[in-house]
Nucleic acid binder design. Structure first.
Lengths: 333, 333
DNA sequence: TTGAAAGCGCTAACAC
DNA sequence: GTGTTAGCGCTTTCAA
């Protein structure tokens, strides 16, 4: 591929017969340019397909009007709402949004954080609170505001909006216990920080109730209906018909519900299933899924807004804040 | 937020007591630097948390080692596979991946394409084949390779890998007709280019079979279980118990299946439902969903690989190619 | 093996 | 209202 040279501001200037400064002003500061020249320049820009070189721009300006959002994976519907929330705010305030994935690894996060800092993003939103030492160092010395969302962090950066994952898991477990369930299984994917906290909350309540807290199962696969179905099959095979299964995510729970259909098990009567996150489909599957709703969109919005404020020099009130969750008692449990 | 100044290559040079040229070389071209100096410099880089400024770098080099992928929306599982495929290739070849959304609008696409060109990305993958004139102009004069995937384009750029959407929809409709279904409804979201083609394929087959091709319903909402459930309710209300419903996406179809459960309708016997795309959950819901599988991951991989080749000056064989789809006959229809 | 100088494209400070 | 100049941080000749 032969690289055609891009049109530069000088090309436009030459074409119109003015100095490049004038072109720059016509584009960024049109007040100070004569009407007719301004029009001439703008026509030339269109005619020559001039697109400013952002690298040159941010090199000079020392900002890029870009906010970065780092999520563990695109293949996880939980983060859809976060993206939606963040994007609505960045759009509104004229920031470009860059979304990247850590592939659920602290080293993956490190790589992307480095790449974001290299690109001079103005702020970063992380959806994890566990980082490598180098990630922390880079972020601290990069001189840009950092927000962490989803969980509460032990050592937050500038902004931290999270949900008490352990308490939420405890609450839904207690809901199961109060319903009279005794043999309750905890099912998870490989334990990331959030899953670990949920497990802790679940097991604490089980122990407090004098129940067996040792029934738990993990899958190395990714969050999917299929994985949920497989986990349910494994539960039944291992412990027989238990009273209830708490899955750390709605995809898994939904897949388990489907597997129950397949086996002719009446979900909500013969066996109770609950999930976590309250994804869109949770209320729509049959039977509807009991789960815990977390304000992911709001956390995304507020984190983005907070970063914009910090970038633009405004103070952020309450930058470290625990957000409420809501138990959604539906038909599956 | 007071912006701390980032460590620059000159800071590192001063710290070690050499010229910045030497630092640059130690980092990018270590062969030409004495061993001990090299070590000293690398230690200083770590100590000072030096992260190269990508803007300055690409300003000089005129490339950024970045490939951009544009999808309509993050809230659509169809593109998860595309992202996965693209990312595996960009990772492998040392390119950063930027993912952005057009929010299903040609103007949205235009905005993001402009922003990508501004950022000097080295190549762009589009998941749509309809663009504004300005988008086309910008891409043509930007001097970077462009790939379009998912559909076949009438006027492709450098690479185009797609599935014949119309033929695929025709095939699954024919499958329904051959099963003996007579009253078949087409349900879609607002018609983007792919939905339009699928509708065409569906209606063509219905007409050829002498059936009523006028039963179709559209929702302005987004692809979701909920929307699918609502559409099914509307279908039943409008036409009573029809024989089959073809949804343009699996999310909708899955939501419709759930709504049937809710109403005590036996899916696959009393009413047939099919979807499109073969999302992961299609085979896992109950009853399993009949649908059409498209090689989205493969198209993403090959498009990314093709761009890398073009960027690096290798030829791409067969850059315009129609990919096969596969009818997945399962239990829902 | 290392240093000096030039320049990538852009904008802001300073002339006129 | 418009042009001149300098410099953002980096890499790459060219010289030493």
């Amino acid at each position: 591929m032969i690289k055609k040279k891009r049109t530069t501001i000088s090309d436009v200037a030459d074409y119109v017969g003015v100095h490049k400064t004038t072109v720059s002003r016509a584009l960024n500061n049109p007040g100070r340019i004569s009407k007719e020249l301004s029009v001439k320049i703008k026509n030339a820009v269109i005619e020559l397909n001039y697109i400013p070189n952002q690298a040159a721009r941010s090199l000079h300006l020392d900002y890029s009007n870009t906010i970065a959002l780092l999520i563990p994976s695109f293949v996880n519907m939980v983060f859809d709402d976060v993206i939606t929330g963040v994007k609505s705010v960045t759009d509104k305030h004229g920031y470009a949004l860059m979304v990247g994935t850590s592939t659920y690894s602290e080293l993956g996060e490190e790589t992307i954080v480095e790449s974001y800092i290299q690109q001079s993003v103005d702020g970063i939103i992380l959806t994890s609170t566990r980082h490598t030492e180098r990630t922390i160092n880079m972020l601290n010395s990069a001189g840009l505001p950092v927000a962490e969302i989803m969980n509460m962090s032990d050592a937050p950066f500038d902004i931290n909006y999270g949900v008490d994952q352990e308490a939420a898991a405890a609450d839904i477990t207690r809901y199961l216990v109060d319903k009279g369930h005794r043999r309750i299984v905890f099912c998870s994917l490989l334990l990331d920080s959030r899953a670990t906290l949920r497990k802790k909350g679940c097991q604490r309540v089980l122990k407090e109730a004098g129940l067996d807290a040792s029934m738990s199962l993990y899958s190395k696969a990714q969050a999917s209906f299929q994985t949920g179905a497989e986990l349910l099959a494994q539960v039944l095979q291992t412990w027989g018909l238990v009273d209830a299964v708490f899955f750390v995510s709605d995809e898994l729970a939904a897949g388990a519900v489907m597997e129950c259909h397949r086996r002719g098990l009446n979900v909500g009567k013969e066996i109770s299933i609950c999930g976590f996150n309250d994804l869109e489909m949770a209320k729509s599957i049959y039977p509807s899924l009991s789960t815990v709703a977390t304000p992911r969109k709001e956390m995304g919005e507020l984190a983005a807004k907070g970063l914009v404020d910090l970038i633009e020099g405004t103070e952020v009130i309450d930058p470290i804040r625990t957000f409420p969750y809501e138990l959604k008692a539906r038909d599956s449990a």
